[in-house]
Design a protein around this nucleic acid. Sequence first.
DNA 1: CTTTTATTGTTTATTTATTAACAATGATAA
DNA 2: TTATCATTGTTAATAAATAAACAATAAAAG
Lengths: 213, 213
Amino acid sequence: MFIKNLPHKTVERLSQYRRALLMILSKEKTHVFSHEIAQMLHITPVQVRRDLMLIGYSGNLRKGYDIKELIELIGKIIDSERGQRVAVVGLGNLGKAFISYFKGKRSKLSMIAAFDINPEKINRVFDGVPCYHINQLTDIIKQNNISIGIITVPSEQAPEIAESLVLSGIKGILNYTPKPLNVPAYVYLEEYDMITSLEKVAFFAKKNDERFK
Amino acid sequence: MFIKNLPHKTVERLSQYRRALLMILSKEKTHVFSHEIAQMLHITPVQVRRDLMLIGYSGNLRKGYDIKELIELIGKIIDSERGQRVAVVGLGNLGKAFISYFKGKRSKLSMIAAFDINPEKINRVFDGVPCYHINQLTDIIKQNNISIGIITVPSEQAPEIAESLVLSGIKGILNYTPKPLNVPAYVYLEEYDMITSLEKVAFFAKKNDERFK
DNA sequence: CTTTTATTGTTTATTTATTAACAATGATAA
DNA sequence: TTATCATTGTTAATAAATAAACAATAAAAG
Ligand SMILES: NC(=O)c1ccc[n+]([C@@H]2O[C@H](COP(=O)([O-])OP(=O)(O)OC[C@H]3O[C@@H](n4cnc5c(N)ncnc54)[C@H](O)[C@@H]3O)[C@@H](O)[C@H]2O)c1
Ligand SMILES: NC(=O)c1ccc[n+]([C@@H]2O[C@H](COP(=O)([O-])OP(=O)(O)OC[C@H]3O[C@@H](n4cnc5c(N)ncnc54)[C@H](O)[C@@H]3O)[C@@H](O)[C@H]2O)c1
């Protein structure tokens, strides 16, 4: 299903809606109101309704939104029909943590391979994901049609890894190293640094503290 | 140093500017132009100059910005003068990864304690950070004046941990579990889920792929 | 029946964030 | 000396994101 120009923030929230809905799905409830979704995610009900309007979903005036239906529709919008394959480059603390967290979470995204240079990790399987030597990167990516790469190598190595990923035909990169990368425009790049998040929390915690004291 | 109402995004970028500047500091250069900072972070030079204007920093028309001076000023704005203390709750894959990454990174943020329930982890030291039993949480936090908590316990435990943190007087929480939390308004809460990031990358990678093909 | 109520869906307004435009500067070159 | 240049600092314009406003609806209550 195609909807043109979905705002970035809406895409993020759709993922969050689905996550939250999957969490409450078990609990016998079949429907949910916009204000319930809103409360779970600390946003306003209007925001929720607006997002759902953008993806063309209609709820029931009295019962709210059908949870199962909505989960399915979000899938149709944000997932790729044929699925997308993912690889992790750098199987250290963070790479392993990611793989263990990801396991069994999303059916349309499959974690296909990990890469490292450490001989102790190569040719072993971690949480169901085989680890290959980094020099097999291009081959494995092309063979398996992997389109998304997660970078969790030491930051100095990140630029060359990014370059290899791009040359291997990857379409999206999630970079967890603090080293900002350069990739061509046709590759979608998302960067995240935990320390920046922590510093942001520290800043606003300090500010709140002054304000509320 | 106080500057009222710094935009959220600017605070994030200030942290990123500092990170990038620290990285190039070694390389003999003493000054940097706005377009150089911009290129490193994939933003526009105007954005950089605007942010620096907001914090009242002036560069040299011919040489650009003094790297050391700027790093220092950013510190004066976003760091707390007396420092802030941080604790990690849940010393599993992600908690350990965070601690090992954080080690030695920021002088004004100190990682003081970790908490867990697993007896094998309690009373041991990980990367310089002592791990305590979760039932000591309030005591340790109050004794050490810890004001920021990072939550990396299994998601089902997250709500009760958040509540304990709040009751212990914490001022900011960084939640890495996929369970959205509720905290009072005087506590700053930041939530991050890796799978949402991955899904966002997957969505825009797919979209780019259609557009550029 | 009629009114009240709680909700959705959508338009309009507001706020926040980004980008464009351009004057000011001062070094360098003509 | 005067013009050119690349840069900063700031204001003005645009775009993106959020929130407010409110009509429409249908169930429930009176
Ligand atoms: N640990 C965290 O929470 C965290 C958080 C944010 C960012 N980071 C960043 O993520 C990166 C990884 O962190 P980590 O704690 O997992 O580090 P780590 O040292 O535990 O893991 C890095 C892994 O990459 C492998 N590696 C090294 N060079 C490689 C190469 N050329 N090709 C393939 N693999 C290679 C290493 O063998 C190791 O297994 C670092 O850049 C760090 O800055 C980590
Ligand atoms: N691994 C990742 O990359 C990743 C990414 C995003 C989010 N998460 C989330 O972060 C959380 C932790 O992930 P993980 O991979 O580190 O899991 P993990 O199981 O390795 O670690 C959890 C730790 O919390 C401890 N714990 C359990 N109950 C506790 C309690 N009541 N008090 C204190 N400690 C307690 C456990 O003993 C364990 O050491 C999970 O909720 C996961 O969903 C993980």
